[in-house]
Computed example of a mutant assay.
Amino acid sequence: MLDICLLGTGGMMPLPNRWLTSLMLRCNGSSMLIDCGEGTQIAMKEKSWSPKPIDVICFTHYHADHISGLPGMLLSMGNAERTEPLHMVGPKGLRRVVDGLRVVAPELPFEIIYHELSEPLEQIEFGPFVLDAFKVNHKITCYGYRVSIRRLGKFDATRAQASHIPVRCWNRLQHGETVEEDGQIYTPDMVMGAARRGLSVTYCTDTRPTPMITEMATNADLFICEGMYGEYEKLDNAKKYKHMMMVEAARIGAEAKPKEMWFTHYSPSEMKPDIYWDEISKIWPVKFARDGWTKDLVFDEEGEDK
């Protein structure tokens, strides 16, 4: 299962009922945070989620509304007596930006391990998370992320027995390990069926439409996308500052066909973004997310495809 909480949905500046952008994902005891805008910690406390077990923090880019909550987050993690290393992922310049913000948090009881992105498409694995970072089109270097949870095939006990594999080895083989027992080597492919469809969430903000977004959102279980502006009068602003109109994002959804799609990263001028629901729903059934929206994604028991 993959737990998701959209902690903040605001763009540019926080509002009384809308914190800046941030998404948290949890799976098998591991946690990942994407962006850390102002108010992220408060939003987490409102959901009773803790920052201490966060293993990875990813940044789409380094504008303040996506990273301004980091210094306080690091201090809270340190005050919670965290000692495990923290991984950070972001565009080139990540270490320099974070070191600058750490002027107010110079001493931490844990190591930060930096993963700076430089290619248009990169894949990194952290625990149960498979992270595909893809470059988008903003005024500065910016990435979207597709987070996937792989799912192994079904265990075939009949094959295991036919191959005379000791029962004590079965569990490790089911978890993808190669096992050596009494001079014999047993591999997972000897007892496992074909990989089944896993889970995936695509998260993308601060960009003009690009084909890569459509590709990375295709058939996702959840696609969370910027819905910066609803008014047609803001199209020039969207092009100038390289953001996305709601209708443009909805068209991406119609092409990618995710199982579910949420808008986020609203302009402060969009006090009631869901007033555009009638128009947008004719293109694709997008949901207008609000701070604190959660969703539990579970494996499809019928899905056997990759």
Results as ranks from 00 to 15, higher is better:
T187W: 00
S269L: 10
T214F: 05
P209R: 06
W277G: 03
D221A: 02
A238C: 13
L297G: 00
V201G: 04
P273G: 12
D291C: 09
E248P: 13
D278M: 03
E226V: 02
M246D: 14
I283M: 08
Y266V: 10
R197V: 07
R290D: 04
F288C: 06
S281A: 14
A254L: 06
A256T: 13
D291N: 12
V247H: 12
A254Q: 12
Y266E: 09
W277I: 13
G193E: 14
F288D: 07
K295A: 02
N237D: 14
M245N: 07
G292L: 02
Y276L: 05
D278W: 00
H265L: 10
N219I: 00
T214K: 11
W262K: 04
K242Q: 15
A289N: 01
S200P: 05
L199Q: 05
W262L: 09
V201R: 01
T202W: 03
T187H: 03
G292W: 02
N237W: 08
R208T: 15
P211I: 15
E279I: 13
I252W: 07
A220H: 01
K259E: 13
P285H: 05
E215Y: 13
T214M: 09
D206I: 09
V247D: 15
N237L: 12
D291Q: 03
S281V: 11
K239D: 12
Y276P: 07
K287T: 14
M271K: 15
Y203Q: 01
F223Y: 06
D189Q: 11
A254T: 09
D221E: 10
S200Y: 04
G292M: 01
T294F: 00
E255M: 14
K272R: 14
E215V: 13
E279W: 06
V201K: 02
L222N: 02
G198D: 07
R251S: 13
I275M: 12
T294D: 00
H243W: 06
A256N: 11
P211H: 14
T210L: 15
N237F: 08
G193V: 09
T207L: 11
P188R: 01
A195T: 05
A220Y: 02
P273C: 10
M244L: 15
Y203G: 02
A238E: 10
H265N: 14
N237E: 12
E215W: 08
R208G: 07
G253H: 04
P209M: 08
W293K: 01
R197Y: 10
E255F: 10
Y266H: 06
F223H: 00
Y241A: 01
F223K: 00
T210S: 14
F288Q: 05
P211C: 14
E226N: 05
M212K: 06
M261C: 07
F288W: 09
G227Y: 11
E270C: 10
A194D: 03
R196V: 08
K295L: 08
Y276I: 08
I252Q: 08
M246K: 13
